Amino acid sequence: ERVRARYDYEAQNEDELSFKKGDIITVLEKDDGWWKGRNGKEGLFPSNYVEELE
């Protein structure tokens, strides 16, 4: 599954994923509120910062 970033997100910890608004992220795992994904790097990000691609 792929999602698009709705906002910029700056990683707060080294296991998190940074991205810019409009970036496409491949979702690897979904957990409550935090998803694991890849966009060149791999890490956790808040699920409310992304939207599913149509």
Score class of each variant (00 low, 15 high):
Ser18Met: 00
Asp15Glu: 11
Lys21Met: 10
Val3Phe: 13
Gly37Val: 03
Glu51Val: 09
Gly22Lys: 02
Gly43Leu: 02
Arg2Leu: 15
Ile25Pro: 00
Asn13Leu: 05
Phe45His: 00
Gly43Asp: 01
Lys30Asp: 03
Val3Glu: 05
Ser18Cys: 06
Tyr7Asn: 08
Pro46Ser: 06
Tyr49Trp: 08
Gly33Trp: 13
Tyr9Asp: 00
Tyr9Glu: 01
Lys30Asn: 04
Gly40Lys: 09
Glu1Thr: 13
Glu42Met: 10
Lys30Leu: 05
Val3Pro: 01
Glu51Phe: 06
Leu53Met: 13
Val27Pro: 01
Arg38Thr: 13
Gln12Gly: 08
Ser47Cys: 13
Gly33Leu: 13
Glu42Val: 15
Trp35Phe: 07
Lys20Cys: 10
Asp15Met: 14
Leu53Pro: 06
Pro46Val: 01
Gly22Ile: 03
Lys20Asp: 03
Val27Phe: 04
Val50Tyr: 04
Glu10Cys: 14
Ile24Glu: 04
Ala5Cys: 09
Ala5Gly: 06
Gln12Ile: 08
Asp15Arg: 14
Asp15Ile: 09
Lys20Arg: 12
Thr26Gly: 04
Gly43Phe: 00
Glu16Leu: 02
Asp23Val: 04
Gly43Cys: 03
Ser47Glu: 08
Glu10Gly: 07
Arg38Glu: 10
Gly33Arg: 12
Glu52Ala: 15
Glu51Gly: 07
Tyr49Asp: 02
Arg38Gly: 06
Val27Thr: 01
Leu17Lys: 02
Arg6Ile: 15
Ala5Trp: 02
Ser47Trp: 09
Phe19Gln: 03
Asp15Pro: 01
Gly33His: 14
Leu53Val: 11
Glu10His: 12
Lys36Val: 10
Asp31Arg: 15
Ile25Trp: 00
Thr26Ala: 08
Lys36Gly: 01
Glu1Pro: 10
Gln12Trp: 05
Glu54Arg: 13
Tyr49Gly: 04
Glu42Gly: 05
Phe19Trp: 00
Gly40Asp: 12
Trp35His: 02
Glu29Trp: 15
Glu16Pro: 01
Ser47Lys: 10
Gly37Lys: 00
Leu17Cys: 02
Glu10Ile: 11
Gly33Ser: 11
Arg6Cys: 13
Arg6Asp: 05
Gly33Val: 14
Gly22Pro: 01
Glu51Ile: 09
Gly40Trp: 11
Lys41Tyr: 09
Arg38Gln: 11
Gly33Ala: 11
Lys30Ile: 05
Arg38Val: 11
Leu17Tyr: 02
Asp31Ala: 15
Glu54Ala: 12
Asp32Glu: 14
Glu52His: 12
Lys41Pro: 06
Val27Lys: 03
Glu52Leu: 13
Ser47Tyr: 10
Thr26Arg: 06
Lys21His: 06
Tyr49Glu: 01
Gly33Asn: 13
Tyr49Phe: 13
Asn48Ala: 14
Arg4Cys: 09
Arg2Lys: 14
Ser18Gln: 04
Asn13Val: 05
Glu51Asn: 08
Gly43His: 00
Asp32Met: 11
Lys21Ser: 08
Gly22Phe: 05
Gly22Asn: 07
Lys21Tyr: 05
Trp34Tyr: 10
Glu54Leu: 11
Val3Ser: 02
Gly37Tyr: 00
Glu51Asp: 08
Tyr7Ile: 08
Glu42Lys: 05
Arg38Phe: 15
Trp34Cys: 09
Val27Asn: 01
Leu44Arg: 15
Glu14Ala: 14
Glu14Phe: 09
Val50Glu: 00
Arg4Asn: 06
Asp31Cys: 15
Phe45Thr: 04
Arg4Met: 12
Gly43Arg: 00
Glu14Lys: 11
Ile25Met: 04
Gly33Ile: 14
Leu53Thr: 08
Asn48Ser: 14
Asn13Ala: 10
Gly22Cys: 07
Arg38Ala: 10
Arg4Ile: 15
Gln12Asn: 09
Glu16Met: 05
Glu29Asn: 10
Ser18Thr: 11
Arg2Tyr: 15
Tyr7Thr: 07
Val50Ile: 08
Glu42Thr: 14
Arg38Pro: 02
Leu28Tyr: 10
Asp8Ser: 09
Ala11Pro: 05
Leu53Ala: 07
Glu42Asn: 07
Lys30Ser: 05
Val50Asp: 00
Gly43Tyr: 00
Asp31Thr: 15
Glu54Gln: 13
Phe45Cys: 03
Trp34Gly: 04
Ala5Asn: 03
Asp8Phe: 01
Tyr49Val: 07
Leu44His: 11
Gly33Cys: 14
Gly40Asn: 09
Glu14Cys: 08
Trp34Arg: 07
Leu44Ile: 15
Lys41Thr: 11
Phe45Val: 04
Arg4Ser: 07
Trp34Glu: 03
Glu42Cys: 10
Asn39Arg: 10
Asp31Tyr: 15
Ile24Ala: 04
Glu10Met: 11
Asp32Cys: 12
Glu16Cys: 06
Asp8Arg: 02
Leu53Tyr: 14
Asn39Phe: 15
